[in-house]
Design a protein around this nucleic acid. Sequence first.
DNA 1: TCAAAACGTGTTATTATGACACAATTTTAA
DNA 2: TTAAAATTGTGTCATAATAACACGTTTTGA
Lengths: 233, 233
Amino acid sequence: MLTRYNHSTRILIALDCIVFGFDGEELKLLLIKRDFEPELGKWSLMGGFLNEDEDLEVAANRILYDLTGLKDIYFEEIKTFGEINRDPVERTVSVCFFALINIHAHSQDAAKSQNAFWISLKNRPELIFDHSNMVNLALERLRYRAALHPIGFELLPEKFTIPQLQKLYEAIYDTPLDRRNFSRKILSTKLLIDTGEKNENSATKKAILYKLDQEKYQKQFNAFHYFVSDFKV
Amino acid sequence: MLTRYNHSTRILIALDCIVFGFDGEELKLLLIKRDFEPELGKWSLMGGFLNEDEDLEVAANRILYDLTGLKDIYFEEIKTFGEINRDPVERTVSVCFFALINIHAHSQDAAKSQNAFWISLKNRPELIFDHSNMVNLALERLRYRAALHPIGFELLPEKFTIPQLQKLYEAIYDTPLDRRNFSRKILSTKLLIDTGEKNENSATKKAILYKLDQEKYQKQFNAFHYFVSDFKV
DNA sequence: TCAAAACGTGTTATTATGACACAATTTTAA
DNA sequence: TTAAAATTGTGTCATAATAACACGTTTTGA
């Protein structure tokens, strides 16, 4: 009986993660200012290696936890990058995924310990290796998914207003949306529950604070219909 | 300067491929009746290991070529499976993807050399390891993609009729579609070119043979709008 | 030649969408 | 105290997309 495959090539497996956040105005990325080799001093995604005794999914959660101090974060695998020379140090195959978090809920200490900073998506610096390609692909995937599934909520606090949600979608798609049509479409999904409260931070008319109907959210998640209308890709 | 990472765990990387075909009536999978260890005699997906000097994408093409004799096949990565014990022989991380081919265009010799057979998707046998999970995920992804992108054509011969295309979509979604609405929707995409020929195999009224407008297909591919209406997921 | 099967096209009611207008709320400055 | 400015909530209307449905045509073979 075999105990090992007769194949010579065992390869390092990395995980790289694109963490999206939303500050109310624009999309942001949680990026690492590297204080370690290789490429010390440059910007990169948060990443890590897959350990011998660790499931791939567990590793993804570990890496996200080390970066944010959060558990049960929403994330999706995007693609596995496996070009021979993508990492100049040594051949490394990287499983890439994106995560969505509430920008105000994560641990400052965790971010500090990784030397991580929120950087505007639009003004992001060059990243090491193929990490810029990963970010581009992640944004594409986020747009694709958010058009059909209500994942945008993952980027917002528990209570939010419809105008805030609209600003988020405008940031994701980098395009203005009609306020009235957007509101109608969102409310027609019946995913929002009126909390009875209003946004006291507003300097003008205070908008209604909603929360997500978690039960419906789970149920409807895979029943994809255009979640955002009034928008052409 | 580093020449290698200081991390101990290098792991075998496999690729596993779900090959879909369509025989005019139902979806089929090209599966391997294993005449090699491990799990000799059982059914599995076609797979292989990633070589040291090989890009991941090149490896996927190699594996598909060995199985079908075809190059430039349509395929999409689905997910990377990385549970510790998914392969009982040795820890193996598997990059999983699905491919769509014209069931009549592939090499019989290539299939024979791999001991591969077309098996009805609906009546598929149990597969080794986590391969059944892979197939389930592939079908889900195929449905997701085919609802928004005209990838169904990849499963048909160069010239095909609208009723044939409809049968394909009915097979993918396992649901009947209205003939008149389907035809209207498909023709409204302007992706089909009337070849002037008719399907001579028919025992009744001969349907018009169309071919795909390749240029428009490439252009419109990422402009996702519901390609199949009259259908709820 | 006529019945049966499958194909092509058309109609209509309903719903969804995009474009647009107006009234209500809240703060601030006159 | 009040008016202006900013923002929010809701409504209307014309057009497009969709689902449900009907009819005539082509082809084979009994």
